[in-house]
């Protein structure tokens, strides 16, 4: 079934994946998975991951993120709907698509009795498109890229969780990839390790690799991602550029003053809605008009102002606004 097209027939630059005019690296249509127990894990998902993006995939535990990733990787058959990765249907085209995809799914899994290097050699030999003549060189390069060269000869069972995570990442980087799917890549890493992973992700993205990154850390998504999607209870709540998502929740005007009561009165007069006083801080929804005038009005009214500005809405605000609940609530 379509095996002939697995081997690229010519070098005419015809990539197997992206069709002309189709910029989506991942595209799902009404993707649904109902497990045998009747549990609806993913419900009618329409997900579009643009090429070249760093795509954050957000959602509390049990929201269907991992099931979605497993369907994209051909590990789970969808109940209904379609999933296209690199322009080809999954899981049918797994053999053509997956060599171009590096994946870290639900944490690393290693052969404890093999060294880190031998683990990578095994995973690489599982890929029928991987050239055995360059295997050792590529493994060494991948180990170097995640900073594990010194520990490459140690048995994997002696690795710390952070080292295992790095080795899992190295496995995803054994070949030049077009898409990286990273499920919670900074899990178990110390802050230094997290920074390194973020740097690595940015470097990969600047090479033109699309990165699909699931995380429960909102600030991580904000720091690294260009686009994001939010899932809750198997449904996609929203997706789009991170800046748009954050802008969806309007920023709040915050005034720091020793005269909060007067400030609150003036702000209301100036048309600021939802004014909240907390200690010496007064906040409210930023009005449409020029904020300089609002500030001038405060000063004219004799309110002493220590600080004045709009706090940009965070992704967390956006998330709470979208789901009406905190992020850590398990679905």
């Amino acid at each position: 079934m379509g095996e002939a097209s697995v081997r690229e027939p010519d070098g005419a630059g015809a990539e197997p994946g992206v069709r002309a005019g189709d910029g989506a690296v991942i595209a799902t249509r009404a993707l649904t998975k109902r497990y045998r127990g009747g549990q609806l894990a993913v419900d009618g998902l329409h997900l579009t991951v643009p090429e070249g993006s760093v795509f954050g995939f957000l959602g509390p535990n049990g929201s269907g993120k991992t099931t979605t990733i497993r369907m994209l990787m051909g590990l789970i058959e969808p109940t209904s709907g379609t999933a296209h990765v690199l322009g080809r249907p999954m899981p049918r085209s797994a053999r053509a698509v997956l060599p171009h995809v590096g994946a870290l799914i639900e944490g690393p899994a290693l052969y404890g009795f093999l060294s880190g290097r031998d683990n990578l050699l095994r995973y690489d030999s599982a890929d029928p498109t991987a050239d055995p003549r360059t295997r050792r060189v590529r493994v060494a390069a991948a180990l170097d890229r995640v900073g594990l060269t010194a520990a490459a000869g140690k048995k994997a069972k002696a690795y710390s969780l952070g080292m295992k995570q790095r080795l899992g990442l190295a496995a995803a980087l054994l070949q030049p990839r077009r898409l990286l799917v990273l499920d919670e890549p900074t899990n178990g890493l110390d802050p230094q390790g997290m920074r390194e992973i973020r740097t690595l992700v940015r470097a990969l993205a600047s090479d033109g690799i699309t990165v699909f990154l699931s995380s429960h850390l909102l600030d991580e998504i904000e720091q690294v991602c260009t686009h994001a999607a939010v899932m809750a209870q198997g449904r996609l709540i929203t997706q789009g550029p991170v800046a748009d998502l954050a802008a969806g929740a309007r920023g709040r005007l915050a005034v720091t003053t020793p005269d909060p009561a007067d400030a609150a009165r003036v702000l209301k007069e100036q048309g600021v809605a939802d004014v909240v006083v907390a200690g010496d801080r007064v906040t409210g929804e930023a009005p449409e008009r020029d904020l300089a005038e609002v500030n001038a009005a405060l000063v004219t009214a004799g309110v002493r102002v220590r600080g004045f500005g709009v706090e940009r809405a965070s992704l967390e605000d956006a998330f709470v606004a979208l789901t009406g609940e905190g992020f850590d609530v398990a679905g």
Partner: peptide, 12 residues
């Protein structure tokens, strides 16, 4: 051990 999923996405 979980290694099956990595072998399959390699793709074995």
């Amino acid at each position: 051990a979980g290694t099956l999923r990595y072998l399959l996405v390699a793709p074995a």
